[in-house]
């Protein structure tokens, strides 16, 4: 596992605004990393820095052994990038566009054209890009990012405008690439979608890295309560099960469902109580905090301690 992307104490300032402040992380081969954060949190800036489109005000960046800001672009052949608002020259057809980008990367053209079929654009490849819908342009963007087996893929909100079916194929392609050793960095707002796919999450807020780690680790750090939902028969409205320890906060949801907030280490204890009490338990659900809640938690924390 060698690091493909190294970012050390990078700061980028636009005039008086600090877009990225003192961010450092390493990405290694075969990793799928989700970069999440508000609009304007510095996600796109980070990607542009990695591509060498802009230079950092301070700190060092290394992508595939090169420094992108120094104008060394040998490493770019193994880099795939999908911008947030991808656009192409409207006058050319999809196939011509793909050929053009393949030539620029000096990759075999025929292979690049096959990618159009992979993203489901095979039938529309002969039409002008100007006639494409938003989703089709996004597919074309994806196809050009995949040219020539990239070792690092930077995808800026790749799934916006994609239909659910293609979204599935998209993640399959990503997974296949990651298994082959490609580093995939993707930013997105669809947090629930990323939850199952990303092995690691980096949360950004106002240019500062707030959290970094796998979802399980973030859950442990955040110490958000796990929600236990019980369906208990024969409980009067407003009444709380008698076996419940007084310290556990709980509330009634609609009708006869009791929701208990359990701290991570008390989860098992509470469950034992619930089953041992012999109450008429009809149903039980354990809901672990999802990425949405974790994200909100880390943002609140970051706001609270400036």
């Amino acid at each position: 596992m060698s690091a493909t992307v190294r970012i050390g104490n990078v700061t980028k300032r636009y005039g008086r605004i600090e877009a990225v402040t003192d961010v450092s992380f390493d990405l290694s081969e075969g990793e799928t990393v989700a970069l999440i954060g508000h609009n304007g949190a510095g996600k796109t800036t980070l990607m542009k820095l990695m591509l060498g489109l802009i230079r950092p005000t301070g700190g060092s960046i290394e992508v595939l052994g090169d420094n992108p800001a120094a104008g060394e672009f040998a490493g770019r052949r193994q880099l795939g990038y999908l911008p947030e608002n991808v656009s192409f020259d409207a006058a050319l057809t999809g196939r011509e566009t793909q050929t053009f980008y393949a030539r620029l990367k000096r990759e075999p053209v025929a292979k690049a054209r096959e990618l159009l079929d992979v993203v489901g654009l095979g039938a529309a490849a002969g039409r002008r890009v100007g006639t494409y819908s938003k989703g089709m342009r996004q597919r074309l963007g994806l196809a050009q990012a995949l040219i020539g087996r990239p070792r690092v893929l930077l995808l800026d909100e790749p799934t916006t405008g994609l239909d659910p079916e293609l979204r599935q194929t998209f993640y399959e392609v990503i997974q296949r690439l990651a298994a082959g050793g490609t580093t995939v960095l993707l930013s997105s707002h669809a947090l629930t979608e990323l939850e199952e796919r990303a092995g690691r999450v980096i949360i950004m807020n106002r240019g500062i890295k707030v959290a970094d780690g796998s979802i399980e680790r973030l859950r442990n750090i955040a110490r958000l309560p796990t929600k236990i939902r019980l369906k208990v028969a024969g409980l009067a409205p407003g009444e709380v099960p008698s076996w419940l320890p007084a310290s556990a906060p709980c509330r009634r949801l609609n009708g006869h469902i009791v929701e208990i907030d359990a701290a991570p280490e008390r989860k098992i204890e509470l469950l034992r109580c619930a089953t041992a009490a012999g109450t008429a338990l009809e149903d039980l659900d354990v809901v672990a905090p999802n990425l949405d809640e974790l994200y909100a938690h880390f943002l609140r924390q970051a706001e609270g301690t400036p």
């Binding site: 489109l53 880099l79 020259d89």
Partner: peptide, 17 residues
């Protein structure tokens, strides 16, 4: 025009100076 349409951004991310 290329800058405004955003195609330049993608082009510059390719291995061309």
């Amino acid at each position: 025009g290329d800058m405004e349409r955003g195609t330049m951004l993608l082009l510059l991310s390719y291995p061309v100076a």
